[in-house]
Design a protein around this nucleic acid. Structure first.
Length: 829
DNA sequence: AGCACGCCGACT
DNA sequence: GTCGGCGTGCTC
């Protein structure tokens, strides 16, 4: 008997035997790429199932893996009982530990996201090897072959194939690829009782395999349709073999057209183990270094922590935070526990991973979104093994399923890439890390030269008792000085007749650089050549057709076509010869980007060799590292780049840092702009003088008396806090108050605006006086990629956090309008 | 992911 | 009409 039949009467009569009877249905997140829904299954009698168990379920014609995300005592209304299938079996019990499961629930609740979206973050793609449907002969092969006149053509072909194979057994899929209308043929064999279908049990996860497509022939007997020809051409161009996924994307085709090609014998599809590319260059082993007294002090404090603790390691640039991490990790590993290290971007910090690897060897694994599928799966499997290890990863690695966690470290904790902005859940790895550390009862270390105000306040919070610690490292290692910072007033340069983008001081510093054979960095936060193009005759500015922003001018190299590109939606067009409005040929470029700076360098300082380091030049995988290695080996004198330069690069030979224009950092409109400007400038300044030679920093600006510049110049974090914190407190912004941003977007301006107004109206009634609603207001750039954007900002004291009814909010959205809920937003644009 | 379904054009 | 080709949408 089946538990469904036993349970129904109870449910219908409204009995609840909660303690004695487990719920008859479960919600299962099926392991399906891109699937957002959960599916309901019946629990067979005698099967003990819990949240977090990995199960196999029948799904369509296949058997798939999934994870139980909830139990149901009642069937959802829209489902009919007879459509519900039973769970097939439990593969692993207690796959997520109860505390990890609680973390996921907490994240879903805090960020107003569906549990399913959170669970997905913690699961690797291809959770379970899918079980295969197979067909095998059940006739005795020592007897003569069965009479096949009862069969149709496909039936005969299938029988033939099976008969001639050694085992009389093929996968359903293989038969279908070999034989036209194989389905029909197989059915006939079943009817005759000559064959049966069975499920190959799910294998324990094996080496990750992917489908690969081989080109067998360019010309064949059967003619091709244009679509098929296109696929063949595409495959040929790629060298005759390509991963199925890539081919489908490149040739824009579906599997039905590929199936046709297989039948015609042009291509073959098979499984192949995906190459794992994590062959890292070997690193020389290294040993713990002698610590400075300050490092010693901080480490001492960290080493005596047991249970949950939060420490802010506030170390100025070059103060040796990494060495403190390394020495804090060693005893944790000795105790047999694992360590999670989060960094903003793996690609930007190869030095950090190298350093860890040099110290701890193969106990390190790296986990981030840039990994290939197989690599990621392997790393993830590795993490489940219960031995002490270190995982270094980016934001999503905070959900790494490490059992027995002994320490979490967030390096460069101020970095905004720890916050997910667009996709739900809009989590902040810093916040999640704190919660996870509490649940795992382990210490958390936040490290930065420029801590976020939130973390700084939290670390000093007297009400937190003795769990919160502020650990300063105010000096650089080996008594190296922090570089002196000069603020240069560009208005005066102009008055003195210097129209160059380089001030006198910076020009002289660049000349010195080449004479002393030293290296320098030039920073500005604009890529491309010019930020906008305008017509001198009619004054028109060339704008993106899809966004309310100007197009940037990109000039790659002499010989290539100059382009106009939108930095918001990546729309690209060829730079026109003439003004599209008045046909004049006087188009002028304004605003400097990295390309223009390198161009001017070539003109004015031909002896200096430069490298450009921004998202245009580092798009290809491994390009970061290649550029940095080239620079380190002295193949260039100057590194010209954007924001990326600020992220923890440790380049010992750099003595000069020039900020070409600080103003674009100072003039942002949102409440964090001052904090961001302070962080960016301090970080980029910190790249200078990290080696034996002292450094020098030149910051060019049109607003030299801006208060932030004063704090940056004096390396004075406290001064920055003293200016900024009172302002935040006065207006109830974080860290005092809390924010939730409701982002509304849609293709129709009116619909978005109306929705925003309706939502504000609803909120006023619903959320009470403790919640201040700012807006609704159009975003600073109203239209991006043909979507209009409106915002609603909720501001409240932590105790007045509203409970948002997300279903209700979504129902307020007019047709085509999308709502994204961003809790603790970092950018409000 | 895989499979059915339905639409479309080419051919009996 | 029928068949193959091909995109779309559903799977508890």
């Amino acid at each position: 008997m089946n538990s469904r039949f036993l349970s129904w009467p109870l449910a219908e009569l409204g009995f609840s035997y909660e303690a004695a009877v487990t719920e008859p249905w479960v919600q299962v997140l099926v392991d399906l790429p891109g699937n957002q829904k959960d599916y309901t299954y019946a629990v067979p009698q005698g099967m003990a199932v819990q949240e977090g168990d990995v199960v196999t379920v029948p799904f369509g014609s296949q058997t798939l893996g999934g994870i139980v995300i909830g139990r149901l005592s009642q069937l959802p209304q829209e489902l009919e009982a007879h459509t519900i299938k039973e769970l097939e079996g439990v593969v692993v019990q207690g796959f997520f530990s109860p505390r990890f499961w609680r973390l996921l629930h907490w994240v879903a609740e805090y960020y107003y996201a569906d549990l399913i979206q959170v669970v997905r973050l913690a699961l690797p793609p291809g959770l379970i090897a899918k079980s295969q449907r197979r067909v095998r002969l059940v006739v005795d092969k020592s007897l003569p072959a069965p009479e096949s006149q009862f069969l149709s053509q496909p039936g005969r072909e299938v029988l033939n194939l099976l008969w001639n194979s050694k085992t009389g057994d093929y996968s359903y899929r293989y038969l279908q690829h070999c034989v036209k209308r194989a389905r029909q043929g197989i059915q006939e064999l079943f009817k005759q009782g000559w064959a049966e279908s069975y499920l190959e049990l799910p294998q324990p996860p094996r080496a990750q395999q992917q489908k690969i497509v081989f080109l067998l022939a360019e010309v064949g007997i059967e003619p091709l349709t244009p679509k098929q020809q296109e696929i063949v051409n595409c495959l040929k161009q790629q060298g005759g073999e390509l991963w199925l996924q890539d081919l489908k994307q490149k040739a824009q085709c579906s599997d039905s057209s590929l199936g046709a090609l297989v039948r015609k014998g042009y291509i073959a599809i098979s499984w192949q183990e995906k190459l794992r590319l994590s062959h890292q260059p070997p690193v020389v082993g290294d040993r713990p270094q002698v610590l400075t007294p300050q490092q010693e002090l901080a480490l001492g404090e960290l080493l005596c922590q047991t249970g949950y603790h939060l420490s802010l390691l506030h170390g100025v640039t070059g103060s040796g935070k990494t060495e403190v991490y390394l020495q804090a990790i060693a005893p944790i590993l000795k105790k047999g526990k694992s360590v999670l290290v989060l960094v903003p971007e793996i690609g930007l910090t190869p030095q950090l991973t190298d350093r860890f690897r040099a110290r701890f060897g193969d106990r390190i694994s790296v986990y981030h979104s840039g990994l290939g599928q197989g690599e990621r799966y392997d790393t993830w499997r590795q993490m489940l093994l219960n031995h002490a290890q270190i995982v270094i990863g980016t934001r999503s690695a905070i959900f790494a399923p490490l059992p027995n966690l002994g320490l979490i470290i967030l390096d460069e904790e101020h970095d905004s890439s720890f916050k997910q902005t667009q996709l739900a859940p809009t989590y902040d790895a810093r916040t999640v890390a704190q919660r996870r550390a509490q649940l795992e009862e382990c210490p958390l270390i936040l490290g930065s030269a420029t801590p976020s105000l939130e973390s700084w306040v939290r670390a000093q919070d007297p009400s937190a008792g003795h769990t919160n610690h502020y650990l300063p490292l105010p000096q650089r290692v080996e008594k190296r000085p922090l570089p002196p910072i000069e603020i240069v007033d560009m208005r005066q340069e102009l008055r003195r007749g210097n129209r160059s983008i380089f001030s006198q001081a910076l020009q002289q510093a660049l000349i010195d650089l080449s004479e002393k054979q030293q290296q320098g960095i030039l920073f500005l936060n604009r890529r491309g050549h010019s930020t906008f193009v305008s017509c001198r005759s009619c004054g028109v500015v060339l704008n993106c057709p899809h966004c309310d922003v100007s197009l940037s001018y990109h000039y790659q190299q002499s010989g290539s076509v100059p382009l106009l590109r939108c930095h918001y939606c990546n729309y690209t067009q060829i730079h026109p010869q003439r003004c599209p409005q008045c046909q004049s040929s006087y188009l002028k470029f304004f605003g400097s980007g990295t390309q223009k700076v390198t161009q001017i360098l070539t003109e004015q300082f031909p002896q200096l060799r430069w490298l450009r380091f921004d998202s245009d030049t580092t798009q290809r995988k491994g390009e970061h590292r290649r550029l940095l290695d080239a620079f380190k080996q002295g193949k260039a004198d100057v590194l010209v780049g954007t924001q990326m330069l600020t992220k923890g690069l440790d380049l010992e030979q750099v003595t000069l840092v020039g900020v070409v224009a600080a103003d674009s950092l100072l003039n942002f409109a949102d409440y964090r702009s001052t904090e961001r400007a302070f962080q960016t400038l301090t970080q980029v300044a910190g790249r200078a003088g990290r080696g034996a030679e002292p450094g020098r920093v030149i910051i060019q600006t049109y607003t030299p008396h801006h208060a932030v510049l004063g704090a940056v110049k004096n390396h004075d974090y406290q001064a920055f806090v003293d200016q900024e914190l009172p302002q935040r407190q006065a207006l109830n912004y974080p860290p005092q108050g809390q924010l939730i941003l409701l982002r509304l977007t849609g293709p129709l301006a009116q619909a978005v605006e109306k929705t925003a107004l309706a939502m504000a109206h609803y909120g006023q009634k619903q959320w009470g006086a403790g919640v201040e609603i700012l807006g609704p207001a159009p975003a600073s750039i109203l239209r991006v990629a043909d979507r209009f954007r409106w915002h609603l900002l909720l501001k409240f004291a932590p105790q007045h956090r509203p409970s948002l009814d997300t279903a209700q909010l979504h129902s307020l959205c007019l047709a085509g309008v999308h709502l994204a809920i961003d809790v603790d937003p970092v950018y409000i644009d």
